[in-house]
Simulated scan of single mutants.
Amino acid sequence: HEVDRLSAFFDIIHQDPILSQVKLIAEPWDVGEGGYQVGNFPVLWTEWNGMYRDTMRDFWRGEPAVAEFASRFTGSSDLYQHDGRRPFASINFVTAHDGFTLRDLVTYNEKHNAANLEENRDGDNHNRSWNHGVEGETDDPAINERRERQVRNFLATIFLSQGVPMLLGGDELARTQGGNNNGYCQDNEVSWFDWRLDERAERLLAFTKRLIDFRSRHPVFRRADFLRGEETLGSGSPDVWWFRPDGRKMTPENWRGGDTHTLGVFLNGAEIPTVSAQGAPVVDDTFLILFNAFNDAVVFTLPAVSFGHRWLYELSTAEPELEAGAAVYPARGVVPVESRSLVVLRRIA
């Protein structure tokens, strides 16, 4: 049966004096006709954004999805703005309790569910995963480096996106289920946490903490209103502006291009149209984020001086241990971005 959005279930929750005041989070899909309802829950609800998950998986494995990527990265206004909801209606995630862990997402092309005793028929067959050339674990250092970088790409994208980040427990520790993408029935080493962290897990945990701290300090990544691509508060620049690796504005042809894997975004911390709990304007730093989902390194030219005179290095998924402040770039300066990585810069002048 099709989903009834006018069901009494929603009315009862919305009228309940307790339930109507709590955070309401939907996993908005079910089996059967009309079961996929991402973007269609009522106003008080937030939703696991399955379209965000699929788009980010596709973008970072090299699928040409830049327009969809930009929409999901900025809060999915196409899904949540029409009925008055805000960016935080989008619960942004790449992995969840069912499906691959983040480590397995970059390690396996296929599910490996034989241990579930259903002849590998259970679990999703379309995981949008990429094993980087070898199925399963390997001792090849080059492949392992690319896999670890890809994990950092997913984590950084989640924590830099507008909306609410959702992190699957264990992904910050590089937890694996050995390619099992339906481990609900495995109460053993397949699904348990191993708290004896190896060097790989320690590195990833440190980078994840850095991302969480970075997001918590910068409200420009936690906006309560959708970005508009316009200047409304007199800062001299729009709240968001997307650009090509040559530093020029993305054109309609660029957005539609089937071979576009690189783009940058300007996020203006002086164009946040909300106030604090004390009634003061919310003002933040301004950032550039350079995305390269291409196989090779790409040299970005930064935008013109009207967007900023000087830019300070903040973080890179290719060099996770490089400290903020390691480099300064002028307007129209060049910034190398390694293959399948992102770089964050902060405006300082």
Rank of each mutant, 00 (worst) to 15 (best):
H1A: 15
V3L: 15
V3D: 10
S7W: 12
A8C: 02
Q15S: 12
Q15A: 14
L24F: 00
A26N: 00
Q37R: 15
G39W: 03
L44K: 06
E47N: 01
S71P: 00
T74K: 02
D78T: 06
D83L: 07
D83H: 04
P87G: 00
A89R: 00
S90K: 02
F93W: 03
R103F: 14
D104R: 13
Y108I: 12
G123M: 05
G123Q: 03
V134S: 13
G136V: 13
N144C: 13
N144K: 13
R147C: 10
R152W: 01
L155E: 01
I158R: 03
I158D: 00
S161P: 01
P165S: 04
P165W: 05
T176F: 04
G178M: 13
N181K: 07
Y184D: 00
D187V: 05
N188H: 09
S191T: 11
W192L: 05
R200Q: 12
L205Q: 04
K209L: 05
L211R: 04
L227N: 06
L227Q: 03
G247K: 01
M250V: 15
M250S: 05
T262M: 08
V265F: 03
F266H: 12
L267A: 05
L267D: 01
N268A: 09
G269L: 12
I272V: 12
V275W: 02
D284T: 06
D285H: 11
D285M: 05
T286Y: 10
L288I: 08
L290W: 07
F294W: 10
V298A: 07
V305T: 10
W311N: 07
S316Q: 06
A324G: 04
G325C: 11
A327G: 02
A331D: 12
R340H: 11
V343N: 09
R346H: 00
